[in-house]
Amino acid sequence: MINSSEFVIQFWGVRGSIPAPGGETVRYGGNTSCLEMRVGGKRLIFDGGTGLRVLGKQLLKQTPVEAHMFFSHSHWDHIQGFPFFVPAFVPGNCFHIYGGVAPNGATMKQRLSDQMHHPNFPVPMQVMKSDMKFHDLMPGDVIQLDDITIETGPLNHPNSALGYRVTWQGRTAVYATDTEHYPDHIDENLVYLSRDADVLVYDACYTDEEYHDPQASKIGWGHSTWQEALKVAQVAGVKKAVMFHHDPNHDDDFLDQVESEVQTVFPNSLMAREGMILPV
């Protein structure tokens, strides 16, 4: 059962691009993007990277399950856990699934189904026997789940992505991955989405040095840096900033160093860690 008086975030996958298992990533985790918000008695799941499989194993102990699943976009590191999300195969469970419509018109239902078509996967999505209800979103749409308000906003990412702002009883958490900052101005859409938030979970895949590396520039790849994350947090009046979507090449020691630098600039900030539970 979910505590009807709590608002907490639990991180099930904090890595970007591709899973990065191994001895050098055990402290921060190697699973790709997935986090859960337990808000006012409801379960909200954001993105379905490989961390979703781990969350699914926990949910099997709590059936029947009802959850609202929000996808930022459908690049593989955000959907590759969905075919392995065992609760979706269990009759009696119910999942409300939300996502944007791709520039080519493909809905989230189509894209989740496509990755499970032969020869990519042995079983189609139709084998999932839970009750799945799909909802198409456009940037700016607002979803109301009883007294929980979920706002959406556009992110700067190839093929588009959505950011989400969750507000309940005066407390707000923002999930904004994957997005790239602009070279000459701050993203006003992102600032508005993050305004006065208690927690901002932000795509801090790179350092500024990596992003601008003349030999291996990351400009145009659709991701941001921790330095830009803190600019958004400061301008938007965010109380706590969480660096998310860690590059698969960044090991635990590297992320320790980044966290030290991040906290020097913005003391109320931290690196996302797999398994971490953060009250809002």
Rank of each mutant, 00 (worst) to 15 (best):
residue 149 T to I: 10
residue 150 I to V: 15
residue 154 P to E: 03
residue 156 N to D: 07
residue 156 N to V: 08
residue 158 P to G: 11
residue 159 N to C: 07
residue 161 A to V: 02
residue 161 A to C: 05
residue 162 L to Y: 00
residue 163 G to D: 00
residue 164 Y to V: 00
residue 165 R to V: 02
residue 167 T to G: 11
residue 168 W to R: 05
residue 170 G to P: 08
residue 170 G to H: 10
residue 173 A to K: 02
residue 173 A to W: 00
residue 174 V to K: 00
residue 179 T to E: 03
residue 179 T to R: 03
residue 181 H to I: 02
residue 183 P to V: 05
residue 184 D to G: 09
residue 187 D to Y: 01
residue 188 E to W: 09
residue 188 E to Y: 07
residue 188 E to T: 12
residue 189 N to A: 13
residue 191 V to C: 12
residue 192 Y to L: 07
residue 194 S to A: 05
residue 196 D to T: 10
residue 196 D to N: 14
residue 198 D to Y: 06
residue 199 V to E: 06
residue 200 L to A: 04
residue 204 A to W: 04
residue 204 A to P: 05
residue 205 C to W: 04
residue 206 Y to P: 11
residue 207 T to Y: 03
residue 209 E to V: 14
residue 209 E to K: 11
residue 212 H to G: 11
residue 212 H to A: 14
residue 214 P to I: 06
residue 215 Q to M: 13
residue 216 A to S: 13
residue 216 A to T: 13
residue 217 S to V: 08
residue 217 S to T: 13
residue 217 S to K: 08
residue 218 K to R: 15
residue 219 I to N: 14
residue 219 I to Y: 11
residue 220 G to P: 08
residue 220 G to M: 10
residue 221 W to C: 15
residue 221 W to Q: 13
residue 222 G to M: 04
residue 223 H to F: 08
residue 223 H to Q: 07
residue 227 Q to A: 06
residue 229 A to E: 10
residue 230 L to R: 10
residue 231 K to E: 09
residue 231 K to N: 11
residue 232 V to I: 15
residue 233 A to I: 13
residue 236 A to Y: 00
residue 236 A to L: 02
residue 237 G to T: 05
residue 238 V to D: 03
residue 239 K to Q: 10
residue 241 A to I: 03
residue 242 V to K: 01
residue 246 H to L: 14
residue 247 D to H: 14
residue 247 D to Q: 12
residue 249 N to Y: 09
residue 250 H to A: 14
residue 250 H to D: 09
residue 251 D to W: 15
residue 251 D to Y: 15
residue 253 D to K: 08
residue 253 D to Y: 07
residue 257 Q to A: 11
residue 257 Q to W: 12
residue 259 E to Y: 03
residue 262 V to L: 07
residue 263 Q to M: 15
residue 264 T to R: 13
